[in-house]
Design a protein around this nucleic acid. Structure first.
Lengths: 316, 316
DNA sequence: TTGAAAGCGCTAACAG
DNA sequence: CTGTTAGCGCTTTCAA
């Protein structure tokens, strides 16, 4: 591939003039501009982006840290980010961690080594103390609320959302309520769910909380465990519509009627929830992703709360 | 951020020695290595990746061209790619085109400007003649079969798959069969569906083919159109399980029984299909993505066919 | 085993 | 308006 000096030579001008036409500077005579453009075209030349990034110190690329690359919730946030990135001319690099701390740090280092202008953290495994310093090297935006002033947030008030659901269930007369979660106690979101649960129902019996639920399969398993309990719940709050779908599936297989014998409510308003007529709380994760991207490119450190909404269907 | 010469100065060695310890070269005395490592650590130094990429001429990054960033099928391929990329230490950049030809070319140019080592094309809008030249600048792998020897393929034999489904439907006694598609005639996959249809049933009545179906919503609309036809189909082959779910939804709403009054079969074996007990043909798109990635990093131009499988459930 | 120096391809003062 | 030149931060001969 040709480089800028070759183009300069061929067009009979200096490299700076070529650079000027490349960057649409004024103060280039029409003749020279035309000549350069012609050679560029003839040679099928494209400037080397690494050289430009090196000199400019920025890459117009932002990374998105995602624990699992096959999870509905994180996919939605990714989609939100992608939606906005195209119109703003940014590239998005996906950084899957599997909640591996070293991997996460490795990705954050891409800020330090000038390979990423910013990073959106959809979910983290390191604690904030170790993450925050990286905000010195580039923009860091989180999809979880944090007080640290160095990082912007596009977040959901999960505690409020969980609380509202549990309160609603209680109001409907449910006293034996269970829920599922993805990760266990190490997850802030699980901790918030538990707090909201206790706030509403007083105590949480350990058998009414099932973790490691990601897929429909996991939902079926969770349903099996929960619905064969002596203290069988009359309502289950699932951490996703696919999981809710699995629970529904299992309930139906053992002739437990929804919503009469069992109320089910899921999260994220997925197609499967619509198909099965499952109630769901929509945290508007696409909007979260879009907002996170906006914060990043505006170099904003604002804390923006994205509203959630409960979608009532017939499973409750 | 510090740079290599600062590290060199501080450790009392030359930049080349620092470079050597950075790249784990031998022939560096233990004392110097230790000294350099200490300074690197003290200074919290990380080499600038752009400088390295510039000099090496490679970025360990590959791009994946995807038309829509909210489509189940393309998501699956992306997931396959991500699965493999992590273990091989590559970064993945997502390139959404919305089937915009200029955008697609812009992305392909990232090969030319040395910003991407390779590109995986999950679906394209430009013709091969204009795409193939870019294979001179980096690896290009397609998820659609093409004879061009310059590009590797991890592909599905869609024609065979469509044909098998239509033949099966015919065997089951269906003579009035409809199908849905995403893009219209400009899509190779639609063309293949039509060809398989004609091969099986002779002629295709235009009202039995509905395009622009992507979501469950679209499926409901398609169902409404199709099921109110004078020549109402007794079987519908949907281009995705969500679309199939929408059709199912509409059918149920007008008391058309599945499978008695209407057979439905979808694609890609999604949770919604499982929930609704819809038959589906699984093209194993995750495997397609994984294979595409393997081809890219092995710099292979092989044509690898990924087998599909028909999943029989009760909707047919 | 080490260092000096020549680039990689480009941008941006600075001096005309 | 245009060219010269000094880097950006790093790798890699080439000599020593």
């Amino acid at each position: 591939m040709a480089n800028i000096s070759e183009i300069a030579k061929l067009s009979g001008v200096s490299v700076s003039t070529v650079s000027r036409v490349l960057n649409h500077h004024k103060y280039v005579s029409e003749e020279k501009r035309a000549a350069v453009l012609k050679v560029i075209n003839d040679m099928n030349y494209t400037p080397n982006r690494n050289a430009i990034d090196l000199i400019r110190g920025e890459t117009k690329t932002i990374g998105i840290i995602i624990p699992y690359n096959n999870n509905q919730a994180f996919d939605q946030m990714l989609h939100g980010v992608l939606n906005k990135s195209v119109e703003k001319g940014f590239s998005i690099t996906v950084l899957p961690t599997q909640y591996n701390k070293e991997k996460e740090i490795e990705y954050l280092s891409m800020l330090k080594n000038k390979w990423l202008d910013g990073i959106i953290i959809t979910s983290r495994s390191n604690d904030w103390k170790t993450i925050v310093p990286y905000a010195n090297y580039g923009q860091v935006v989180s999809c979880e609320y944090t007080e640290h002033p160095e990082v912007g947030c596009a977040y959901i008030d999960r505690y409020a959302s969980y609380l509202e659901v549990f309160q609603y269930l209680k109001l409907k007369g449910h006293t034996t309520v269970a829920f599922t979660a993805a990760r266990g106690m190490q997850s802030v979101s699980t901790q918030q769910t538990i707090a909201a649960y206790k706030e509403t129902f007083g105590e949480l019996r350990p058998e009414h909380y099932i973790s490691d639920c990601y897929s429909m399969e996991d939902g079926i398993l969770a349903g099996e465990k929960l619905l064969n309990l002596h203290s069988r719940p009359t309502a289950i709050y699932a951490n996703g519509d696919e999981v809710a779908g699995g629970i529904y599936q299992y309930a139906r297989s053992v002739h437990i009627q929804v919503p009469d014998d069992l109320a089910i409510i899921g999260q994220e308003n997925q197609p499967i929830g619509i198909a099965l007529s499952l109630s769901s709380v929509d945290h508007q994760l696409i909007k979260v992703g879009e907002q996170a991207f906006e914060l990043i490119i505006n170099k904003s450190k604002d804390k923006v709360k994205i509203p959630y909404r409960i979608i009532h269907r017939s499973s409750i």
